[in-house]
Computed example of a mutant assay.
Amino acid sequence: MNAAPADQIRLLDVQALDVRLQQLAHKRRSLPEHAEIESLTKDLTQLRDLLVAAQTQESDTAREQTKAEQDVDQVRQRAARDQQRLDSGAITSPKDLENLQREIASLAKRQGDLEDIVLEVMERRESTQERVAELTDRVASVQSKIDDTTARRDAAFEELDGEAASVTKEREVIAASVPADLLKLYDKLREQQGGIGAAKLYQRTCQGCRQELSITDINEIRAAAPDTVVRCENCRRILVRTSESGL
C-alpha cells in the first residue's frame, strides 16, 4: 500500500485523537463518584430495609397498645358497673355482697396488671418510634449524599462528553483528509491492537510496541520509497517515518 508521507503523518494525528478519546472514555468509566454512588446505594438499601422493619414493628406495637388499652377500658367499665350495683344498695344478701366485693377487688387487680402492660407497651412503642425517626433521618442523609455525588458525576460527564465531542469533530476533519484505504487499514489494526493502529518510528524503535527494530528491518524500511506504507515486524502496526526515525 502506498500513501503520501504527509497523509501518513496525518494518520499519527488521527491516532493521537483516538488515544485522547480512549483516555476520556476511561476517565468517564473510572470517575470516583461511580464507586461512591455504588457504596452509598448499598448503604441506602440496607437502611431502607431496617426502616421498613422498624416501621412494621412500630405498627405492630401500636396495635398491641390499642388492644391493651381496650382491655383496660373493658375491665374499668365492668368494675364501674359492679361498684354502681354495690353503691345502689340493691344487693342485700351478705353472700352476694361478699361475692361482688371480691369481684370488684379482683377487677381492680386485673386493671392494675393491664395498666402495667399498657405502660410497658407504650415504652416499647416510644423506643420503636425513636428508631423509626433515627432511620428516617439516616435514609434522608444518605439519599442527600447520593444526590450530591450524582450531581458531581453528571457535571464531570458533561465536561468529559463535551471534550469528547470536540475531539471527535476534529478527528472527523483530519480523517477525511487521509486516503480511505489507509484509514481502513488503520481502523482495522486499531481494533486488533488495543486501540493503537499506527505508531511513529522513533530512533529505530516502534512507539507502538516499544521494540527496537532489527538491522534487517531498518535496512528494508530505509530502502522503501517514501510513500510506501511500512509495518512493524513485531506488532504489525503501521510505522510512520519522520525525521526522528533514525534512518
Rank of each mutant, 00 (worst) to 15 (best):
L185N: 07
E38Q: 09
G246I: 09
S127F: 09
D161Y: 06
E130W: 10
L201E: 09
V229L: 00
A164F: 02
E170P: 14
E130R: 10
Q192K: 15
L160Q: 08
R48G: 01
H34N: 11
R222C: 12
A225Y: 12
S166M: 03
R237N: 14
A180T: 14
D113I: 15
I174E: 10
E120H: 14
K109P: 07
K188T: 15
P226I: 06
L86D: 09
Q15L: 01
S106R: 10
Q129S: 04
T216D: 05
T149K: 12
A80S: 06
A54K: 02
R102S: 01
K67D: 15
E159R: 04
C206R: 10
Q57T: 10
Q203A: 04
S177Y: 11
G197Y: 01
A108L: 06
Q77S: 05
E159Y: 01
R20C: 00
A53C: 09
R124Q: 10
A108H: 11
E220H: 09
A165G: 11
D96L: 08
T128M: 07
Q65F: 06
D73L: 09
L97M: 12
R231S: 06
A175Y: 11
K200G: 11
E69D: 06
Q129C: 00
A164M: 05
G162Q: 03
L86S: 13
D71L: 08
K27D: 04
E134R: 14
Q203K: 07
I9Q: 13
E191Y: 14
D96W: 01
Q77D: 10
G112C: 02
L97N: 13
P226N: 06
S59A: 12
V142N: 05
V14D: 00
R241W: 15
I221C: 02
L213W: 07
N2A: 12
R204D: 05
V240A: 00
P226G: 08
A223S: 14
L107Y: 01
D161K: 05
E163D: 07
Q111P: 11
P179T: 05
L160M: 09
E158Y: 00
R237T: 03
E123L: 08
A165N: 06
A198N: 11
E58V: 15
D71N: 07
F157W: 09
K42P: 14
A198D: 07
